[in-house]
């Protein structure tokens, strides 16, 4: 009984950690620009697919991962430069639609370059699962959790200890004022896209051994990441992490104890329940209307 519960918990936390990393990407860009970047899932796909194709060409795994993350970062900058920046006066909804367009474009490109097949990636360490109290844990799950934790701590430090991080925060709080004190807000926005692309692609690389990877893996994972971000309260870093883990665990429990048919339904109705009682999400900022 306990082993069963533990098994569902492991499954939930692993997939939840992935959702959390994607949700963090959403949060970052949302904070800097109030745009919900629906191409976030595509960064994840680029990370996984580029790593797989580079290792297939004989590049060592570590180098392949670094190159893949760089590629995603460059793509993030390009996305901001050539799709978001030219439409700077447009309202947020227009920008969101642009990101949807960009995600379709990137997916199409990936399909042309890498084809439509699913690809496998080796586990970072051993293939042997770890047994704890009768439940099994894929060793890759530890990598997902570990790297996820490092990224979260890194982000917190970045935002509280570095000037650039503070500049992003300042821009998110008040763009006009930030510009007045000399922050180049366009540059900040570009940085936000870069960092969230890096986050997304790292998530894509670490989960690829568990989920496989293909040109369209970003659609569903991106959507779940968005749900996680919304549950946690868009714009909140802690919210993204908690929302992601919660979503993953609830999904796994629903699949195990209720019925796998309702797994996705439970996940998506959770967002309704949370937003019904807490319209700003679990950790959403209180917005004070200034008169």
């Amino acid at each position: 009984m306990f082993a069963e519960f533990l098994q569902y918990l492991f499954t939930g936390i692993t997939i939840g950690a992935t959702y959390a990393l994607i949700a963090l990407g959403f949060t970052l860009i949302y904070n800097a620009s109030h745009v919900i970047n629906f191409a976030q899932g595509e960064f994840l796909m680029i990370g996984g697919m580029a790593t797989v194709s580079l290792t297939a060409m004989g590049v060592p795994m570590i180098l392949a991962i670094i190159l893949a993350v760089l590629l995603a970062g460059v793509l993030g900058i390009l996305l901001q430069r050539f799709a978001i920046a030219p439409a700077k006066q447009a309202d947020v909804v227009t920008l969101i639609i642009i990101t949807i367009g960009a995600s379709i474009f990137i997916r199409g490109l990936a399909q042309l370059v890498w084809g439509k097949e699913y690809h496998v990636m080796q586990n970072f360490s051993s293939d042997e699962p770890i047994r704890i109290f009768g439940a099994v844990l894929n060793s890759q799950s530890l990598w997902v959790l570990g790297i996820g934790a490092i990224l979260v701590v890194g982000l917190v430090l970045f935002f509280t200890r570095t000037l650039i991080g503070k500049a992003i925060l300042a821009t998110s709080m008040n763009k006009e004022a930030a510009r007045l004190v000399g922050i180049r807000t366009q540059l900040v926005l570009m940085l936000a896209f870069l960092v969230s692309a890096v986050l997304g692609s790292v998530a894509g690389v670490v989960v690829a051994p568990i989920t496989f990877t293909s040109y369209d893996i970003g659609i569903m994972l991106g959507l779940k990441g968005f749900v996680a971000a919304a549950i946690g309260g868009l714009g909140s870093g802690i919210g993204a992490v908690v929302g992601g883990l919660l979503l993953g665990v609830v999904e796994a429990m629903a699949a195990g104890y209720i019925s796998s048919d309702y797994k996705d339904a439970v996940a998506f109705s959770m967002i309704l329940v949370v937003l019904f009682f807490m319209p700003r999400g679990l950790f959403g900022a209180k917005v004070v209307e200034r008169v």
Binding site: F10, A252, G256
Partner: peptide
């Protein structure tokens, strides 16, 4: 008799069942 949807990335829960 359990199911999973096409985009699922982990079926451990169903198999445990």
């Amino acid at each position: 008799d359990v199911t999973y949807s096409g985009s699922d990335t982990d079926m451990t829960a169903q198999l445990t069942n």
